[in-house]
Structures are given as C-alpha cells and as structure tokens.
Nucleic acid binder design. Sequence first.
RNA 1: UGGGAAGUCGUCUAAUUGGCAGGACAUAUGACUCUGGAUCAUAGAAUUGGGGUUCGAGUCCCUGCUUCCCAGCCA
Length: 571
Amino acid sequence: MEKKDKVRLDSVKPQNFIKNIIEKDLSTNKNDSRIHTRFPPEPNGYLHIGHAKSICLNFGLASEYNGLCNLRFDDTNPTKEEVEYVESIKSDIRWLGFNWDDRLFYASDYFDKFYEYAKQLIKNEKAYVCSLSTEKIKEYRGTLTQPGKNSPYRLRPVEENLELFKRMRAGKFKEGEHVLRAKIDMASPNLNMRDPVIYRIIHESHHRTGNKWCIYPMYDFAHCLEDSIERITHSICTLEFEDHRPLYDWFLEQLNLFHPQQIEFARLNLSYTVLSKRKLLELVEHGYVTGWDDPRMPTIAGFKRRGYTPESIRDFSERIGVAKRDSLVDVALLEHCVREDLNKRAMRVMAVLRPIRLIIDNYPEGKVEEIEAINNPEDISMGTRKIPFSRILYIEQEDFRENPPKKYFRLSPGREVRLKHAYYIKCEKVIKDEKTGEVKELHCTYDPKSKGGGTADGRKVRGTLHWVSAAHSVKAEVNLYDRLFIKENPVECDKKNDFKSYLNPKSVEILKSCRVEPCLANAAPGSRFQFMRHGYFCVDSSNGKLVFNCTVQLRDTWAKIEKSLNNTTKS
RNA sequence: UGGGAAGUCGUCUAAUUGGCAGGACAUAUGACUCUGGAUCAUAGAAUUGGGGUUCGAGUCCCUGCUUCCCAGCCA
C-alpha cells in the first residue's frame, strides 16, 4: 500500500517533454547515462527573464539528473559582441544562483578546430568557396515556394577551394568577396539546407581573439561543433531553430563527430512585456528607460534592482513549465512568486508615502514613547524593534476621507481607528486650506488605555493605519512602478503600430516627500522591506539619498471593492 | 501558396503513454486577522471543428480550421 501511494506521488510529479526524453535516454544508457547541457548566450546584450527560463532549465536539468551544465559564450560575430556583456551575463547567472565551476567556454576557443573541420568538408567536396555577391546568393536561394539554383561556383575543384579558403583566412579579400558554403541541396524545401553560408569575411577585431581571424563561422556550422566538442548530450534551444536541426545533424554526420541531440522548446513570452534583445536595446538607446537595469526592464539586472529575489525567479521558471507551444505567461504569476517569497522574508516597516499631518490633541507635548513592533509575523525569529511615537504624526492621505464611502473603514470625522502597534485614535477636527479646500491637518484624540492596540472593554475598530512620528521619521524618495506597456501583448500588432506606441506613459511615479521609520535611515542598498499596507520595497543604490524601489504592491482588496462600488453607482 | 512546428479551464501546465481530465496563477464568495497583507475554506471554468477505430479516445486513424517559425554573409 505504501509503495502504491509512492508510485502515485511520483506520477503526479510534474513532468515535461524534455525530462521524458532524458529519462528515456537514461533508461537505454544512451551516452553512458551522462547528462550534459549548456547555456550558450551570444554576448551582445543583457540577459532577460526569457534567458532565466533557459538558464534554470539547463542548469536545473543538469543538477536534477546528476549531470553538468556549461556556460558557453557563442561569440562568432565580432560586430555585435562586447566584453561588457560577457561580464554582465556571468554576474547575472551567478546572481540567479547557478554555478558553471570550471566549465566556462567560448566558441572563439574553437576557431582553429572549426577551421580544420571546414577544410575537411572542402576536401570531402561538401563545401565550396562561393564568389557570388550577397544579392546574388539571395537571388539564387529561391523562395519559400520555388527551389533555388546552383551557384556557378559550386563545382569549383577542391584544390582551388582550399587555396581560396586559405587566402580568405589570410586576409587577401574584402568583406563580401567570397564565402564558404556547405554543398547540400539548392532544391530543399528547407531553406536552411540550400547551401548555407558557413564562413564569412569580417575585418573587425574580436573581443577575445583580436585580429587573429578575419573569417568567422556562422551559427549553424559553429554551434553543433561547439556542442560536440564539449560532449553535450542534450542541446536545448528555442523553437525557431527547429528548421535548423537538419543542418545541425548534417554537419555532425558529414564530419562523423559525437552527436548531441538538439531539443527545442517555446521561448517565454510575458504579458505587458517585450522580451527581445533588439526591442530592449531600442528602449535603452532611445531613452525610454534609464538603462539595461532600469527597474521596469525585464532584464535580470532590472529585476535585481527592482528587488526581485533570485529564488522567486527560479520558482517562476519552475512553475511556467516547459513545452513546445507558443504561450503568453501572465505577469501576475511572476508577481505572485515574488510576493510569496518576500512575505516570508521581508521585515515589516511603516512608511508613509503621501503624508498628511495628524495631531493628537490630548497627547502630552514633548512626550515620546518607544513602541515595540514585531518585525515579521511570518517569522518570529526576526524579532522586534522599537518605534518612536509622539503627538504629531504622519499618516497616509488616502487613509482619511471626509465623506467615507460604504465599506470604507479607515479614518473619517468622528470615527475611531487603530494606529498599528500603538493606540486607538478618533478624528475630532479637520483643518482645511481656506482657498483650495484641501485637507491640511487632522486633529484627533487618543485613548491612553488602548496602548498596544487593544482595550479592556473589548471594543473593536475596523481600520488599522500605519504611521510615523513626524519628528523622528526619515525623509525618503520612493519610486512606484507600473507595467511598462499598456497592451497585454505589445508585439502583436507590430506591423501596423510600433511596439513603442504601447508604452505606458505612467510606468513610473516618483514620490519625493515620503516619510519612513527611523530604523530605515541606514538601510543597505539592495535590502528589502515590506512597507506595511503598501508592498515590497528595495533600497536603491544611490548617492547619499535614501531611495526605495517598489518591487511589487501588496494585493489590494480595498481597491477592488472601491472599483466595484464605483461601477455600481455609475450604472 | 513550399517546408517545419503547435492547438487542454481566462492564463500557464499535467494526465502513469488507450482507463476518474489534475495542479498553479487569475477570478468570485466566505472564515479569520492589530497589514483591506498573509492564511484557510468553497465555487465556477478546458480537451480546435467534423468523422472513424475501440467496451473505453485529450491520447490512435482520416479530414477540415487556427496560430507560430523559415527566403541574414545575425544568433
């Protein structure tokens, strides 16, 4: 019976098609039951949450099946790649919590080998130097429905190809004069098989090999070789490479090399977000955001600065699963993951974002009490702290309504509420600006017998407000963020409207006159807190000023109630 | 219109490979609460259409429909 239950539990464990492949391979002892994956970014931009999915998948699979995962920079195109990106990618992967030990590789490490393999293809009459122009190559390739035609250079003798290829490498030609092509089938219905270019001339310095090379291998030729050289068993990539798999397999067969299995999965799409390096670069370059690490960016660096934890991103990657169908994941799931994580770990503090003065008329002037507050009700081991309480306080503007709507149980004239951890107060008088009518100040009385937040007579109050003592609180700046795009799928109507036309004009709100508890005065950059009744906030690293970035707001039930209230009164 | 791939609750994803369509998020309702947070409980909600095989089909077969990818000397 016990065994039966266990079997059922195992079968309930979420699976995905890649794990199924791996487990089948393990059961047949393929590759001596070795599991070896790799994460192969091109260092031409910053990593985003889509890469995080791939990183978690590849490193996760390796650790789950006692295998290894390599970090490999696919640096075959010096025109787009930079050391800055290499460094940021390494740091982002480490931040996510993964470790490649000594298995850091570069495609450029293998340039000599690639060159030898290319010569071998030439010798086997499986590759030739083509001297057609870019335009002509395109023309000869044919179209989706029409087959291509053979290049006039296709029958060049081996010796001539070898000589030309050698001179290409020696820098004897200008860019575009010649390319090396695989000799496959110009009539293939798969365009990738119509004699693809495998080497091109680029006279540009490479961030690692300098000026040693002026010919560079194309992705299709290089990638399968990189995988093979590193004895990768499962080469996991995204769906758009499905059409490239026959080519991947072709090179390895022609060269009779160790043959990893390429497996494709659907890349991540997130609602209200764009996840393409090109588009993200556009946002950065045109100043729509402040940089790659702008807290609104879906980059790892952006999430980090926004206050997301690596744990929450890994949890998210696990929960979205892996499949082959195109999907658009609800960003609410990501927000759920970070709330769930931070709920357990973040210290609770009080911060008043939009302050209004509140004076307790019957509280002695000059008196200051130290009020004890629990740091995290979800984790008692986080202890308690003392908060100063005095006659003049700040509370949140939205916590007072002169004419409260139904179901509003915060402060209003004549009503009693609780100040968190402190006393019951009752609103006695509202001071307004004579000209504008704006509420300037609230005068209240407190019940000295309610200290700690309860009374002996057992009377209940519905509202509990957060507060700070005016004289003791610390000034801070707070950045509130909303989604960067107003459209669920900003790339959907790309043809008609540029994705940038869906940018949310109110994606950031900067609040400059916030007041926070004194214990936050020296909060370390990167540290995370829950501002009670608001959300989770992270200290931004900035010069001297105390700045908090909002990671995610708390779920706001009252906002929902109020919204539905408004809707019903309108209709 | 050639080739490749994919269609399961609103969203993402499972289904021991032909045997009770499950989970999470989201939504709604209620309980509880010194955070309108958290927590707990409950509810609604799906196999792309049409045939077929079968005792039995999300799964196999036929046929339609829809979506995505491919014509870089990018990856």
